[in-house]
């Protein structure tokens, strides 16, 4: 049951993804203007959705009890500061993740 539901979840994501990526090629011929509301949403959605996803990632984080989200805060700062310095996605993700893993496994 879990297996079937998991397959259905993956297939659903795949179908919607294909519709979004290949669909416009069928729907909007090159010579016709795209509906303005779609152009607007595709411009403002990414940053809003990513902002929401960041909140989503911290949804289970407990700030009131020990260790008061210290691993999350330290690792997030590590990611942010290293990105400001190096501007490298890979280095920042790697550093943030490794620091977080060390903190939750050995420190707190």
């Amino acid at each position: 049951m879990k297996m079937i539901n998991s397959i259905l979840i993956v297939l659903t994501i795949s179908v919607i993804t294909i519709l979004l990526r290949v669909g416009p090629a069928w729907l909007f011929p090159a010579d016709k203007p795209t509906p303005k509301v779609l152009v607007y949403l595709s411009k403002v959605m990414p940053i809003a959705v990513i902002g929401m996803l960041i909140v989503y990632c911290f949804r289970e984080t407990e700030i009131s009890t020990y260790p008061h989200a210290a691993p999350e805060i330290i690792a997030a700062l590590m990611t942010i500061v290293s990105y400001l310095i190096k501007r490298s996605t890979i280095i920042s993700i790697f550093l943030g993740t490794v620091v977080y893993m060390i903190l939750v496994q050995f420190v707190f």
Partner: peptide, 25 residues
Amino acid sequence: INTEGVDFAMTALFIVIFMEQLMST
């Protein structure tokens, strides 16, 4: 390897994308 905490890769990815987008607008 003990993968506990590897899920922070997702958080870090979103933080970086978010910063990148903030800097370009």
